[in-house]
């Protein structure tokens, strides 16, 4: 079974984003970029499926600028077999990405598409679900456990009330949550080896997909800042304050 893993190049999760003064967006010049952390978990899970014998080949795909090659190379260094870059400098919304991924699915016929539940830049949490809709396949979102059982996959999902397990007919779309696994670091020999692994470069036009955005960002502002308050000297003071707030008797 082939596993397809879409990955996105985003601002590194340790960097605090700065809103541009003109309100046009977030300043990404000279900012460290990395693989979206949830996608890293997806790559790791695909490798574990291969290690367990459930997957045979891992194909990683990214929609983004030429620099997204670096993100794909990271995935190859972790253990993916080959990569596809759908290159565009345009910002592509989840709906457009899902349409492109659907086209890749048609070509590659993966048994599972494993991807992050959301990207930490736009925080949309849509692409996996949209891909599942467009391909008419089931979805296991916010996965904390993935188990392939014959022609189905059992996905344990992190939901508001706790955990929920669903069984999905393959092919299926699975989106990863934080506790699915802890991604490995690529070893130096694997980083070297990744440089020679195949990477195909395509454009959205090659798939005949319209990626024109549907949303226009009118402005981006910083959220209202909280002011630091007071430091109290003792537990008694805190008890008094909590009583003043009416939350303690």
């Amino acid at each position: 079974m082939k596993v397809l893993v879409p990955v996105k190049r985003v601002i590194d999760f340790n960097v605090k984003p700065r809103v541009k003064l003109d309100g046009s967006g977030v300043d990404l010049t000279n900012v460290k970029m990395s693989m979206n952390p949830f996608d890293e978990i997806a790559v790791e899970e695909a490798i574990r499926l291969r290690e367990k014998g459930a997957a045979s080949e891992i194909v990683v795909v990214s929609v983004g600028p030429q620099k997204a090659q670096d993100t794909l190379r990271t995935a190859l260094a972790m253990g993916a077999d080959r990569a596809i870059l759908i290159q565009t400098d345009q910002e592509v919304e989840p709906l457009g990405v899902a349409k492109l991924l659907k086209a890749v699915m048609d070509e590659e016929s993966p048994g599972i598409v494993l991807l992050g539940k959301q990207a930490i830049d736009d925080d949309c949490n849509q692409t996996g679900q949209m891909l599942a809709a467009l391909s008419g396949r089931p979805q296991g979102t916010f996965a904390s456990k993935v188990e392939v059982k014959g022609d189905t996959v059992e996905v344990t999902r992190e939901v508001d009330g706790g955990l929920e397990t669903v069984s999905l007919a393959l092919p299926a779309i699975v989106t990863t949550d934080l506790r699915l696994n802890e991604p490995r670091y690529a070893s130096l020999p694997n980083i070297m080896k990744a440089k020679t692994k195949p990477m195909a470069t395509k454009t959205p036009g090659d798939y005949g997909v319209d990626i024109a955005p549907r949303l226009t960002t009118l402005k981006v502002v910083e959220p209202a800042k909280r002011q630091a308050g007071v430091k109290l000297g003792s537990v008694d003071e805190l008890v008094t304050k909590l009583k003043d707030l009416g939350v303690a008797a």
Binding site: L95, N125, G128, M130, A133, F142, E158
Partner: peptide, 18 residues
Amino acid sequence: SIGKNIAPRVAAMLDVMQ
């Protein structure tokens, strides 16, 4: 978790960006 699971699936079926 329920809304985030279902809404994008509906959006894509309607060809709408959520």
